[in-house]
């Protein structure tokens, strides 16, 4: 459990032998998903500020909560891989039908300013968990690097 778990929302990584575990939490599922997006970006970006120069909208749908986590993070990986998109902040909402809509503020990768970290290949279902606690939704997911 991360030390700062009292905060209403946040993200942290946890150990996996070869890959990277990501934990994200918030007071709603949407907040937790937004934190998961920021956590993913903290893995792939090691340095350089992401400026909120531009915005991008995302729409993702899935059959259940686990699949929505995978689909959402995969969408962000695709945007990074193909468009070089980096996010500074997210507004995410998810409804009961497991449809997500998000607005990201951010900019396109600038290799002169941004230091890339380890590349994330994909998002795994292994040990994936979406848990509702009394005052928070918590996501645990392992990404392949």
């Amino acid at each position: 459990m991360p030390a700062n778990t009292r905060c209403a929302r946040g993200h942290a990584t946890f150990d996996h032998t070869a890959d990277i575990g990501l934990e994200a939490w918030g007071s709603t599922f949407g907040e937790a998903l937004a934190e998961a997006g920021l956590g993913l970006q903290a893995i792939v970006l090691h340095g350089g500020t992401v400026r909120a120069r531009d915005s991008r909208t995302f729409r993702v749908a899935a059959d259940d909560a686990d699949a929505l986590v995978v689909a959402w993070l995969s969408e962000l990986l695709y945007a990074l891989d193909v468009h070089g998109w980096l996010s500074a902040s997210f507004e995410v909402s998810a409804n009961e039908e497991f449809q997500l809509s998000a607005t990201a503020r951010g900019e396109t990768l600038d290799e002169a300013r941004h230091v890339l970290g380890v590349g994330v290949k994909a998002v795994s279902y292994h040990e994936l968990a979406v848990q509702c606690e009394s005052d928070a939704v918590r996501i645990r997911v392992i990404v392949d690097v």
């Binding site: 599922f29 259940d64 909560a65 686990d66 998810a94 409804n95 009961e96 497991f98 279902y125 040990e127 994936l128 968990a129 979406v130 848990q131 509702c132 939704v137």
Partner: peptide, 19 residues
């Protein structure tokens, strides 16, 4: 989305902490 529904769906396909 209701908490119980999320939880149920989540466990349904055997995700979550392993042995």
């Amino acid at each position: 989305m209701s908490a119980s529904r999320r939880k149920k769906r989540s466990r349904g396909r055997g995700s979550g902490p392993p042995a």
